[in-house]
Amino acid sequence: MLDYVRASTYHARLGAVKNAFTYSVDFVVTDFGPAKPSLISRNRFNLWSIWDHRHGGKRDEGQGKQWFYDLLKEKGFPVESAQLVLVTQPSYLWFHFNPVSFWVAMIDGKPCAFVAEVNSTFGQRHCYFCAHDDFRPITERDRMVADKLMHVSPFQRVEGQYIFIFGFDEKQINIRIHYENGNNGVLATLEGNRSPATSSKLAWAAIRRPFGAARVVALIHWQAVILYFKKAPFLKRQSPPETLLSEGHAKE
Score class of each variant (00 low, 15 high):
L2F: 09
L2R: 10
Y4E: 12
Y4H: 14
T9A: 14
Y10I: 09
G15H: 06
A16E: 12
F21Y: 14
F27E: 07
V28D: 05
D31F: 10
G33M: 00
L39K: 05
I40P: 08
S41E: 15
I50A: 10
H53C: 04
H55M: 01
G57A: 10
G64L: 14
L71D: 11
K73D: 11
K73L: 15
P78W: 07
E80I: 06
L86Y: 09
T88V: 15
L93R: 14
P99L: 03
A105C: 08
M106S: 12
D108I: 00
P111L: 08
C112F: 02
V115M: 04
A116P: 10
G123V: 00
G123P: 06
C127T: 02
Y128D: 09
H132G: 02
D133N: 08
D134C: 10
F135G: 11
F135N: 12
R136I: 09
R141F: 04
D142I: 02
D142C: 01
R143Y: 01
V145P: 03
A146H: 05
S153T: 02
R157M: 01
V158S: 04
V158T: 13
E159G: 05
G160C: 02
I165W: 00
I165Q: 04
F168E: 00
E170L: 01
E170A: 10
K171H: 13
N174E: 12
I175S: 02
R176K: 07
E180L: 13
E180F: 06
E180I: 15
E180H: 12
N181H: 03
G182P: 05
N183P: 03
N184K: 05
G185L: 10
G185Y: 13
L190W: 01
E191F: 09
R194D: 10
P196R: 10
A203T: 08
A206L: 06
V216C: 07
L219N: 11
V225K: 09
L227V: 13
K231F: 14
F234N: 09
K236M: 15
S239Y: 08
P241H: 03
E242C: 05
H249N: 09
A250R: 13
A250M: 11
